[in-house]
């Protein structure tokens, strides 16, 4: 296989995932509804005052985003594993790392990007001051690819277990801590009227590092899981 056919394979694999997602819309929509509902719970639980909500909004939105990404992550490789497509990916002439990157990309487009688009509504509901909105969206834009890549590692490791849910959270949540720290700190400094570029650059660095190394881990994990 040459480079051109690798590229068309990646495109075909992503198109396949989109078609499957379009035909089972609830799988993509439910995590987003989950985000909206949890965000609604906070004003009810802590009271609707501007100061409290605005103060905790960046943290709440990010924690909810982490939980939502875990919610859908179990399914990332589950269907491919059950119907045998994962075996065929391992045996395909194309490098498995590339196919893993294709899966990560389509997962991000289907779950991460909608979250970025949804975030202004969450910011509105949680009364996040307007100065923080752009930074919040930027942190989600840089952070959700990391979420997709890391959940792909966890999902590939646990796909053959059939009941990975709670285990997956145990494996992944500690690894999300740097992301949570820098993302919320970026929004906080915007709220204080300070530049957030430093934190955003750190997030961008994490993203590049994760997207470079995660496909290797995902490919290794898939090979372990299909046997």
């Amino acid at each position: 296989m040459n480079k051109a056919s690798y590229r068309s394979l990646v495109v075909a694999l992503m198109q396949r995932d989109f078609k499957v997602a379009m035909r089972r819309k609830s799988d993509s929509i439910n995590p987003l509804l989950f985000v909206l509902m949890v965000v609604t719970l906070f004003p009810i639980a802590v009271g609707p005052s501007h100061e409290v909500l605005g103060r905790i909004a960046p943290g709440v939105i990010w924690v909810v985003a982490l939980l939502a990404s875990l919610l859908g992550s179990e399914r990332l490789f589950r269907d491919d594993y059950l119907d045998g497509s994962l075996e065929q990916m391992v045996l395909s002439p194309a490098p498995l790392e590339l196919l893993a990157l294709a899966k990560i990309s389509s997962h991000w487009l289907l779950s991460g990007l909608p979250l970025v688009i949804l975030s202004p509504f969450c910011a509105l509901l949680l009364k996040l001051p307007i100065e923080g909105w752009l930074t919040l969206m930027l942190t989600l834009l840089l952070g959700t690819p990391i979420l997709s890549a890391m959940t792909a590692i966890g999902a590939a490791l646990t796909v053959s277990l059939g009941r990975g849910g709670a285990l997956l959270s145990l494996l992944l949540l500690p690894l999300f801590i740097p992301l949570l720290i820098f993302a919320t700190a970026a929004v906080d400094s915007s709220l204080l009227g300070m530049p957030a570029i430093g934190q955003l650059l750190f997030l961008a660095g994490f993203m590049v590092l994760t997207l470079t190394l995660a496909p290797l881990a995902v490919a290794a994990a898939i090979k372990v899981s299909v046997n």
Partner: peptide
Amino acid sequence: FIGHKAAVKAEL
């Protein structure tokens, strides 16, 4: 290789 699992996507 075609195994027990046919690698046919149910939605497609």
